[in-house]
Amino acid sequence: MTSLITIHKGLIFTIILRMTNDYHLSEDLTQDTFIRAFMNMKKVKSGEHFRPWLCTIARNIVRDHYRRNRNSPSVSFEQVEEFQGQSDDPIRRRVVIQDALARLTERDRMLLTLTYYEGLSLREIAETMKMTEANAKVCLHRARKRLRKQLAGYENELL
């Protein structure tokens, strides 16, 4: 079980952090995801379905959290202010992209995170998102366009 956590924690944490924009909350929700997964381990059909199944649990954990707390994820203003004072370009770029991602829908954010996180196939993405591969392709393209639109005017920070 420990090895399962080691292998997948980066992916799960990335997905959750992209959805919540809160580092400490993401750490807690990552732990919750693994605990829920261990409790329902019998439900996973086979090894190849494990990763999409785990991603779906992470998505549901975040949804449940916001349903319980009745607020939606937002960019941490403390974080933005903290980074704004710094001249470090990669950090500024990260904040700008995080901010743009936060303005997208949950589905778009999830699609983009799954796509660019190393090693996830289109089949796995489609399985996690509960859609067909063709549909996932179209939605991904649209999500990319929407993200680009959100980043209009921030080109200097990106390059």
Partner: peptide, 13 residues
């Protein structure tokens, strides 16, 4: 490049 950054939650095992 930014979206493919691997984020690490640290030692949560």
């Amino acid at each position: 490049e930014e979206l493919s950054v691997k984020l690490d939650p640290g030692f949560i095992e």
